[in-house]
């Protein structure tokens, strides 16, 4: 059993170690070790295309995470207050947006946007001489659709497990509804909102397929990585990949610590 577990960890981390290892390769080609070098790191971080892609990815992921966390939480709170048909419809839409494959979301959003632009643009051009086209905002919109559903599910799980008596106690002590929300409900929901924020950020930052269809001429980091792998030139990508990898592992550890600490505080308080 112990041997099996060790083998699984090796299986999981060997490819990652390979990427990290070859980012220090002096040579240019994959699987061809030429000695240790940091050259690709300095090359990668002085390459304007990579830096631009990184910034675009960070903007998209940051905006997606922020919007998804806010809208997802609002939806979870709203759904607590309704029953019947509205609730059924929303539940169905949430599951559909999670179940429909990313590639179909990408394609259908592309088709819908193109159709919309074809209808609206002649009018806009004749009126103000402007036109709308695919851009960062179309990517953010498509990413928020999926991620708001994820945040909503996380926050709802927390809401159902929440101790109602805390809310009642707060009301008994003459807190206004807004006060109860700010001082009781929101702090209790915060860990799952935060977890949802980090999840959305990662999903959006890593997403290739939806972005591939709706980004227009914009290049995000995964799109840049994809095209370099297709061309077979990757030493710079290994370096960027290693940096991104280490930062996401760091984020994961931070998220874990936050979640555990908040649980401990919750236990201590009760």
């Amino acid at each position: 059993m112990r041997i099996y577990a060790t083998l699984v960890y090796l299986f999981l981390y060997f490819p990652i170690a390979l990427i990290v290892g070859f980012s220090f390769n002096a040579g240019k080609y994959a699987m061809d070790w030429q000695g240790f070098s940091l050259a690709w790191y300095s090359k990668a971080f002085s390459n304007p295309l990579i830096l631009q892609a990184l910034i675009t990815s960070l903007i998209i992921a940051g905006m997606t995470a922020l919007l998804s966390a806010i809208i997802g939480t609002m939806t979870a709170l709203g759904l607590e207050r309704v029953t019947g048909r509205t609730r059924t419809i929303f539940d169905a839409l949430i599951y559909i947006s999670i179940m429909v494959p990313g590639i179909v979301i990408g394609i259908s959003t592309l088709i819908a946007f193109v159709t919309l632009f074809n209808m609206v643009n002649p009018l806009l051009l004749s009126l103000w001489n402007i036109k709308i086209e695919m851009g960062i905002w179309t990517v953010i919109a498509a990413h928020v659709l999926f991620n708001l559903a994820v945040v909503c599910l996380l926050v709802r799980a927390r809401l159902t497990g929440m101790d109602r008596s805390l809310v009642e106690a707060s009301e008994d002590l003459y807190a206004t509804p807004m006060g109860t929300f700010r001082q009781v409900v929101l702090p209790l929901l915060m860990p799952s909102i935060l977890a949802g924020f980090l999840l959305s950020f990662t999903f959006s930052f890593e997403d290739f397929i939806i972005t591939f269809f709706v980004a227009g001429p914009n290049v995000t980091l995964p799109i840049y990585v994809f095209s370099s792998i297709r061309r077979g030139v990757t030493p710079e990508i290994n370096a960027v990949g290693t940096v991104v990898l280490l930062s996401s592992l760091l984020l994961l550890v931070i998220a874990q610590v936050i979640l555990q600490r908040s649980e401990k505080i919750a236990v201590a308080k009760s």
Binding site: M74, T75, G78, L79, S108, T109, A112
Partner: peptide, 27 residues
């Protein structure tokens, strides 16, 4: 209270209609 509920659900509703339901129908 009903206005508040509607306000809470409106943004998600807009996303679902314009980025899920309509695109799938167009497709």
């Amino acid at each position: 209270s009903r206005t508040l509920t509607a306000l809470l659900l409106a943004p998600a509703g807009v996303f679902f209609v314009f980025l899920l339901v309509l695109p799938l129908l167009v497709m």
